[in-house]
Design a protein around this nucleic acid. Structure first.
Lengths: 209, 209
DNA sequence: TTCCGATGTGGACGATGCTTAGATAGCACC
DNA sequence: GGTGCTATCTAAGCATCGTCCACATCGGAA
């Protein structure tokens, strides 16, 4: 009485079908649940219900798995920024809205955010990260260019966009520092604090030139 | 024929004398040589010429060792910033000088810088990091306050200082991103690029309010 | 001098990243 | 419909890692 293919597939097929995607989902599940510390290759394989060696047929390294996770994260970040950019018609308000969305993304998915940048920091580790369509960089440049009414040179737009990106990244990573707590209270909450710091970037920039 | 104490001490004393310091130096040596990836507790013990269990009499954890390394790094960062602040009498030039020194420190010691912030990101992991005398935060606030001629409110000075810190940190971490390369060439080098991005923070800020 | 606490060693345990050899299954081809 | 070929998965094993344990050694106070 040999088991049919269908029954095997329902129970536990020897071949998973789409392990690569399953591994990525497992990795992100672990990341949200236990943080980057608990994210071992073996744990990912366990989560996906597969042997510890199976992932090596889909990713060369643990690094390559992390890299794929990071790319997914950047894609979702870009999506969140795009939604924020479309949320307002006021061109002056667009850049701060993007900035706030950025920081809130990092706050909502801190573990994913950490993996994203621990990948991105390694030079040449993020192949399509210089593709402007893939990340949200062009969104920022458009918002800056628009808010300046097209008066800025291309180089200045680029510099301003990089500056903005650096600023929100720094804010995203240092948001939780203890030395900021008293100031947060004085301003009446996290949101006001974020807007206050972001204002020192974006208000100032819109008056520049 | 028992060996004398002096001979033993010269050869390989059972008790090291100042292992804690030796471990920290070994850790930093490994960090500079192999980066954060090669920094295992066992490697640190090896480098110090001691058994793998010895560090546990001086640090509760590997994390606690990393934490001490991070604190040392922040201390040296503060020192570098202080030197930069004293390098000029022009009050308007002080803040950009500090910013440049910050980024150059991160560039000169990337592994140490990474450890510093991977410690600092963990809330409550950096006990004396909210001590303004220990980090360089007060330096930044002074420079900002001075450049504004004492016109800014205390809260604004704090916000501006945080903004500057976030910006410089972001720049330090993203300095090497591939998508910035073409812009660097257009501006004629790394230094010009850094000054250009920093200018979008500091020039703008000095006109703010 | 004696003895205790601080500091070191050696060995062990479980977990991890990764490799190799072999089992299994989908799929083109005859 | 059988027959291989290749991609995929498992089992077992290696070196390393963080951590703990029992024990060795030393320095200094009683």
């Amino acid at each position: 009485m040999t088991t049919t293919h269908a029954a095997l597939a329902a129970a536990k097929p020897y071949h998973h079908g789409d392990l690569r995607r399953a591994l990525l989902e497992a990795a992100e599940a672990i990341l949200e649940r236990e943080g980057p510390v608990g994210l071992s290759l073996r744990a990912v394989a366990r989560e996906a219900g597969v042997s510890p060696a199976a992932p090596y047929h889909h990713f060369k390294d643990k690094d390559e798995l992390l890299l794929a996770v990071g790319r997914n994260g950047f894609a979702r970040l870009k999506q969140a920024l795009a939604e924020a950019a479309l949320s307002t018609d006021d061109k002056a308000a667009r850049l701060p809205a993007i900035g706030l969305a950025y920081v809130e993304f990092a706050q909502a998915h801190p573990a994913t955010y950490e993996v994203m940048y621990s990948c991105a920091r390694r030079v040449d580790a993020m192949p399509d990260h210089d593709d402007e369509a893939a990340n949200g960089f062009s969104l920022v440049k458009d918002a800056i260019s628009e808010s300046a009414g097209g008066q800025m040179s291309d180089i200045d737009v680029n510099l301003a966009a990089i500056a903005a990106w650096c600023a929100v990244h720094g804010l995203a990573e240092m948001r939780g520092f203890a030395e900021f707590e008293s100031l947060k209270e004085a301003l009446g909450g996290e949101e006001a604090f974020l807007r206050g710091v972001l204002g020192h970037f974006f208000v100032a920039r819109s008056r520049h030139h």
